[in-house]
Design a protein around this nucleic acid. Sequence first.
DNA 1: AATGAATGAGATTTCATTCAT
DNA 2: CATGAATGAAATCTCATTCAT
Lengths: 200, 200, 200, 200
Amino acid sequence: MAVARRIGTESSATRAQIIAAAEAIFIEEGYGAASTRRVAARAGLKPSLVHYYFPTTEDLLLAMSRKGQAESDEWLERALAAPDPLTALWQLMVDSSRNALALETMALANHREAIRAEISAHSHRMRARQVEAIERVLGERLRLDPVLTAPGLSLILAGIGRALVMEGGLGITIGHEDAARWVRHWLGQLTGDSDPAPDA
Amino acid sequence: MAVARRIGTESSATRAQIIAAAEAIFIEEGYGAASTRRVAARAGLKPSLVHYYFPTTEDLLLAMSRKGQAESDEWLERALAAPDPLTALWQLMVDSSRNALALETMALANHREAIRAEISAHSHRMRARQVEAIERVLGERLRLDPVLTAPGLSLILAGIGRALVMEGGLGITIGHEDAARWVRHWLGQLTGDSDPAPDA
Amino acid sequence: MAVARRIGTESSATRAQIIAAAEAIFIEEGYGAASTRRVAARAGLKPSLVHYYFPTTEDLLLAMSRKGQAESDEWLERALAAPDPLTALWQLMVDSSRNALALETMALANHREAIRAEISAHSHRMRARQVEAIERVLGERLRLDPVLTAPGLSLILAGIGRALVMEGGLGITIGHEDAARWVRHWLGQLTGDSDPAPDA
Amino acid sequence: MAVARRIGTESSATRAQIIAAAEAIFIEEGYGAASTRRVAARAGLKPSLVHYYFPTTEDLLLAMSRKGQAESDEWLERALAAPDPLTALWQLMVDSSRNALALETMALANHREAIRAEISAHSHRMRARQVEAIERVLGERLRLDPVLTAPGLSLILAGIGRALVMEGGLGITIGHEDAARWVRHWLGQLTGDSDPAPDA
DNA sequence: AATGAATGAGATTTCATTCAT
DNA sequence: CATGAATGAAATCTCATTCAT
């Protein structure tokens, strides 16, 4: 339904510039500050030009969210293609630089139906992708575990990782190092690694 | 320091009414929607009356956040006083009704310095309180574990719980039941419960 | 017409406190800032109490203006009673501390009819009082001057004095020292002083 | 530095219309009344349009002040180019229509730092310009005077002129005619005019 | 492809004033 | 004497959006 609304070439440099400005404001000042006016000011463009490319605010927000998703996909693929996919996945999940945008987008999703749908669908796909990879790496071992499943593991890692990033942003640190050590140890056990990487 | 700003008795019914309206809007429409106008409309009051009780928007937000914290504290104490504190704690953490407000407040904290400070301090206290209780219940056993600590366990439960609530709100469910089952099983093992409660 | 409006004893300490606060705000922040709320805050009182003593803002403004007039009268009498009344008068006119309030009151008078009437009447009286004193001191000599009169001299001194203070407040200084020297020299000549005080 | 804030062409008719309305309100009701709402109403425009051209109230006030300065400059140049520059200058200084705006702007300057800076700089320039002209006309004679200088004379005329206008606005007239006569006589003497213009 | 102009809505805040106690 | 509660008006500013060029 949003297809017919797009104006301006998909590949336009100006378009990219606007999205980049929106992203920057999003991360630095929160979703509430991502107004077309502010985005225009940040990009050094006139407000009307922003509306020329993105008729409604939602159009801009969606474009931004999609770009973020594409980047997330790339990062995920790169992690899953690493020699030790599980560790790479965990590192991705505690990467605060990526998480700032993701978190803010999630907050936004709570209030924009269109965004919510996009985020939800994308999260589904990402989890499924992770499940595939985890199955590939740990399939045999998980079959032996009485309760742990690949989807469950994916969610657990995501939850703990996000908590570390979120609380870190708020300046909370109690238990952080302990939890991270426990995860690394646990992942070491799961992969049958008899010599887990020492704590960093 | 913000105390002197308060106008209107702490115990005023109107005051409580305003905070309740703000809370409702907060949960239903997000922190961005909690404007004085909207809060007033929701409470059936005039906007100026809201400003009479809460000179600035931040004053209102802070009052709301503090009320939420007081309630959280009560819930936590009740959980920790239960026969099986760990299970009660876990149930508290996946209670979506409480989490909705907490999550939204957390998002708000990212953009309001005053709120951030409050939330951060409160989270510290809550975690410390949980650590105390966990130590009391699992102290001996944790000493035997090579990596798990009480603070780490507290954070892990919080992270997984919050992920379940947050994703649930977005309509994402993959891995949820699996992760919850794993946590219950894990907690059962930690408490040495040979007969864990069946899945709910 | 304003008589019946006064509430609270004329001599009340609280009353004086309110007027003092209003004066301070007037001088520091200008007449636009002299709202009952701000005055109350400055005096450490509740806004309603200010309204209890001064039912309308104008009542407060009038009281303040009258207090300033009474003080001005005292200063003037003291100056006119000095050994060299003309010099004392001139010093009064370039006294910036008194002028700040007077100037701001004048600005206010432009927009409050009641104040305008008061100020106008008071200025009339003050000029008449000065004229009397000047006549007493310079009567004989002025009769010899082809154009200078006591009222004229009073106004000229007031005008130059006020310009020095006003421009001084804006940071303008060109010609200030020269003009002041000229006035002192002129007054010396007028009083027949063959040995005018050296420039200070 | 404030240049980048301007929105709307410098030459826009609407822009000029807004400034004109602000000026009128300024003169008639004082600087305190020059709110965007009132200005808009006076100009027959919507308040938001005023903000479109002048994002902040200060922007509008500055634009108005600058326009007034440009006009003052023109009047001054015209006066200084007259056959009898001193008399023309004096007439300019007692021109109440021009002075009303200038006075009000001065009052405003006391409370707006940006305006104060502008006014101060402009007054400096105007005084310097007058000094130049006075030097040209009276140079030789002033060299003979023991105390009078061109900057001093400029300030003295400004002070007396402004007092006449200001007090006239308040309805005060004592000494006015006398002072004006004295100034004319004095200027006649200074220019060596043996036949000063009769009183108007 | 871009932009200046315009507008209605709404947000935040301050204000003077009234009233009941 | 004093105060808490309430209210309508207004001020400043931001916003998304539309339209004509």
